[in-house]
Nucleic acid binder design. Structure first.
Lengths: 262, 262
DNA sequence: GCCGTCCACTTGTCTAGATATCTAAAGGAG
DNA sequence: CTCCTTTAGATATCTAGACAAGTGGACGGC
C-alpha cells in the first residue's frame, strides 16, 4: 500500500461536531470537485484512508457509501472505488415526434442515436393484449383492454430506457401495430394511416429513485435517479390514442422542450 | 419492546446467496409495498428486527440505509424509522408562462399555489449584478455581466424550489427588474413593457441527486432527487433575454408539457 | 395542577475485529 | 510460450459491543 500524499486530503477536525464519516466524505467530495481525482480515477483504498485518518474501516466505508448515494463514486469489488464518469447524455428534443421526422421512415430512437454517432439497439420486445391498469385506462378515456408494446433501448450496449406503449384494442387489433415490427415511421405513422391524424401530445415528467427492478433492467449505478415520462397522444378528434410510459436513466438524458410564449 | 408479530415479516433464507441485509431490506420493502406499513407509519425498531432475524444491529441498520437511499423510509433520531409519506405534488403546466396568465398580475408561482389551496411563500430574495458563468453567458449570446435574481419558493412552509434568473445588464439595469419587487406579472411583464415581446421559451430538464448544499436549502430527505430545469426566454427578434436556472425537489413536482404533432 | 427529574427506548456514531470474494499480477509447471 | 496456481490487495458482509444523544412518558416535589 502506497502512503497517501500529505496535503491531498486534509485532517479531521476533532473539535467539529460534524461526524467523522461526514468529514471524510466532505474531504473526498471536495477533492473530486477540485479535480484532484479525475473522472474514472481510483480513490485511495479503504486501508489507505484508515491509515491516513486513524479511524476504523467501517467509518471509511460509511463515508464511501455517502458518496455513492450522491452518485459521485462507484465501488468495484476487488478493484477499488472510482470517480463515476459522466456518461454522454442524449438530448430529447420536443420536436422528436414531428411528422417530418416520421416521414423519413425510421423510428425516433434510431434516427437520433445514429445522428449522435452512437450504436442504438432495441431489446426485449414484447407485444400482447392485456387489461389496462387504472392509470392507463383513465388516460385512454376508460378503455379496459389494450395492446401493450414493451421494449428496452440500449446505446452502445448500455441500457438507457425502457418503455411500454398502450393502445386501445379497437384501434390496434389486427393492424401492423400489433406486429413486432410496426413498419417504417413506427406506430405513429401507422396510426395516421389508420385515419387517426395526430394532433398533439401531452407529456408528464417525474423524477425519483429507481425500484430494484429498474436498477436491474437499466443496470443503474447507485445514486442515479430515473426520469419517468408518461406521454399521451391525441388525434385530431381529441381522442387519446396511445399512452407511452417510459423510464429513463437520468444520467443519460436531457429533455428539451420549446414552449410558445403566447 | 413489543414482540414482532410472526408472519409480518418472513424469515431469512440461509441457502440464498443474497446478502442478509438485502433480504431484510427486501422484506421491509415488500411489506411497505403491500400496505402492511402505511404512509407515515413506524417500522419495527432496530432492536425488534435484531431480535426477529437474529442478526447484529449494524446489519439491520444497513438494511434501513438501503431503504433510505431508495427514498422509501426516513429515520427520526430518538423516535424510529417511518414510511416516508408522499407529499402532494405540484403540477407545472407548459402554459404557465402564457401571456394571459401574466396579465392577471400575480406571479406564476403564487397563482398556481393559491389555486391548489396551498400557502405559498417566497424567501431569500437576492438581486445583484455579477459576472455571468460560462454556461449562462453562452445561453445569453455571450454577455459578460448580468443581473441575477435569486429566490427560494416554499409551499405550506416546505421549501420546494430555488431559482436564479439571469438577465443581460443592458436590458435590466435601472429598470424595475433590478428591484426586489418587479411588480405585477413579474419580470416577464416588465420585459414586454421594455419592448422585448416574448416569443418562446426553451427548457432543458435534467434529474440527479442533490449536492449537500441543495439538501440543506431544500431540506431534502435522503433518497429524493432534484429536477434541474434551465429555461431560456427569447424575444421576437430571437434574442435570449433571460436564463432561469431552477432546482426543484423531485418529490414535489410533476412537469407537464403539451407538444404539437406537426 | 405544574414543573422538573429520571428512565426506558430510540436512532446515531464509532471501534476492532472476523470471514468471504473478487481482481490482477507474479511465478511455476508443462 | 501457455496455462494454472499462488498471493497480495481490494471491497463485501457480518458481528458484538461501546458510548452519545434525542424523545417521551412516569413519577415525585411543590
Amino acid at each position: 500500500m502506497s502512503p497517501l500524499q500529505s496535503g491531498l486530503l486534509g485532517e479531521l477536525d476533532p473539535t467539529s461536531d460534524r461526524a467523522v464519516f461526514r468529514q471524510i466524505a466532505d474531504h473526498l467530495r471536495d477533492a473530486i470537485g477540485r479535480g484532484r481525482f479525475g473522472e474514472g480515477e481510483k480513490l485511495p483504498s479503504e486501508a489507505e484512508l484508515v491509515e491516513h485518518y486513524g479511524v476504523s474501516r467501517m467509518t471509511v466505508r460509511h463515508s464511501f457509501s455517502i458518496l455513492q448515494g450522491e452518485g459521485l463514486v462507484h465501488a468495484e469489488h476487488g478493484k477499488g472505488v472510482f470517480v463515476r464518469p459522466r456518461p454522454p447524455v442524449r438530448r430529447l428534443a420536443s420536436d422528436r415526434f414531428a411528422r417530418r421526422h416520421r416521414e423519413e421512415g425510421k423510428s425516433a430512437f434510431l434516427v437520433e442515436a445514429d445522428a449522435a454517432g452512437s450504436h442504438p439497439q432495441v431489446d426485449g420486445l414484447e407485444v400482447k393484449e392485456e387489461k389496462a391498469g387504472p392509470d392507463v385506462s383513465a388516460r385512454l378515456g376508460g378503455v379496459r383492454r389494450v395492446l401493450a408494446r414493451r421494449r428496452r433501448y440500449l446505446l452502445d450496449g448500455r441500457p438507457v430506457e425502457f418503455a411500454a406503449s398502450y393502445l386501445p384494442l379497437d384501434i390496434a387489433r389486427g393492424t401492423q401495430i400489433a406486429e413486432p415490427n410496426p413498419g417504417p415511421g413506427g406506430i405513429y405513422a401507422r396510426l395516421e394511416e389508420l385515419g387517426h391524424r395526430l394532433d398533439h401530445f401531452e407529456e408528464e415528467i417525474r423524477a425519483r429513485m429507481p425500484s430494484p427492478d429498474e436498477v436491474r433492467t437499466l443496470r443503474l449505478a447507485s445514486g442515479v435517479p430515473v426520469i419517468h415520462l408518461i406521454r399521451t397522444a391525441f388525434d385530431a378528434e381529441g381522442r387519446a390514442v396511445e399512452v407511452c410510459d417510459t423510464v429513463m436513466a437520468a444520467d443519460a438524458y436531457v429533455l428539451a422542450y420549446q414552449l410558445p410564449a403566447t
